[in-house]
């Protein structure tokens, strides 16, 4: 059977990418939870993080030799933090400039979507103009190598770092959402914004916070993606759509669903490479999306963070 061939070899990269999809998917699901809106422009938050990380690393490492040890760690942290911050800034501005005025006007859903698409188009083309249209590689921050092998599949340092960072961020997010006042606010607004505001929750502030958190994760994911593959002005497009499919797969509005969905989609997508030529790989996410929407529209984990659609 096609699956047994190279299964483990495809599984490992699948998990790695899956973690990144999960990080991005969380951004989609958070915004959907509080606004019932797909933030199409989230893919550009991801891209911004990628470029921010790229420039920081270029500034730190330049064409010098590959750092190691504590330097590597600090550079990685710098990359992650910078990309997260810039991602959050773009997400914040997006909400303030593009979405909030629409909310004030009670704009119909179509308008939001078109604004999001326009913002996305604008942002990535601006990035292309500013930073060029070629693919750029983030300078190596550490020496990569095989750490161990599982059933004949290599597991590299890079993959471990990416998965580790992603998991750490997801755990932090889970804690924030479930155990802090901030998270309580988000969950309240997602469930019933009218009642939440009656109980003293500042809706506008919570929505901003939601975008910011999604932006932090998305931006960091952009940097990690950049270290794994490359940075490119259109890098947000496909991963963005796939992450959205992942969010739907896990249950839109459900944060843990987004994590699960992302991981699953990454694995399924990667492993299907053993069955089909890699040219068609991008189709997998769409097929998954359509199947989910037709047979289990509420997603795997079903239960939503917010009110029913």
């Amino acid at each position: 059977m096609c699956l047994s061939q190279h299964f483990w070899q495809f599984l490992i990269p699948g998990i790695t990418l899956g973690c990144l999809y999960a990080l991005i998917a969380i951004g989609y699901t958070l915004v959907y939870g509080v606004l019932q809106l797909i933030n199409f422009a989230h893919s550009e938050v991801f891209m911004t993080g990628g470029f921010a990380g790229l420039f920081v690393c270029q500034a730190l490492v330049g064409t010098g030799k590959v750092p190691h040890g504590a330097q590597s760690v600090s550079y990685m942290l710098a990359g992650i933090c910078c990309s997260a911050v810039f991602g959050a800034i773009v997400a914040f501005l997006l909400e303030r400039v593009a979405y909030r005025p629409l909310r004030r006007r009670n704009a119909p859903r179509l308008i939001y979507l078109i604004t999001a698409i326009g913002a996305s188009l604008f942002l990535f083309n601006l990035a292309g103009k500013l930073f060029g249209r070629d693919k750029a590689n983030i300078p190596d921050l550490y020496t990569d190598g095989v750490v161990f092998t599982v059933f004949g599949a290599q597991v590299r340092v890079q993959q471990l770092i990416i998965v580790g960072a992603a998991v750490a961020m997801m755990l932090a997010l889970d804690t924030v959402v479930n155990r802090t006042k901030l998270g309580a606010g988000i969950r309240a607004v997602a469930q019933d914004s009218q009642t939440a505001s009656l109980m003293g929750v500042n809706i506008n502030r919570v929505i901003s916070q939601t975008f910011v958190i999604g932006g932090l994760l998305g931006g960091a994911a952009g940097f990690l993606f950049g270290t794994y593959l490359n940075v490119h002005y259109q890098m947000g497009f496909l991963p963005g759509i796939k992450a959205f499919a992942a969010a739907v797969l896990g249950g839109i509005g459900n944060i843990r669903g987004a994590m699960l969905g992302g991981l699953l989609l990454g694995i399924v997508e990667s492993v299907s490479q053993s069955c089909m030529s890699s040219q068609w790989i991008d189709v997998v996410a769409f097929v998954v999306l359509i199947l989910v929407l037709m047979f289990r529209p509420t997603g795997i984990l079903g239960q939503r963070l917010g009110r029913a659609a």
Partner: peptide
Amino acid sequence: GAVLVVMML
């Protein structure tokens, strides 16, 4: 893209 956003706003 910019025109789209401005129009919608």
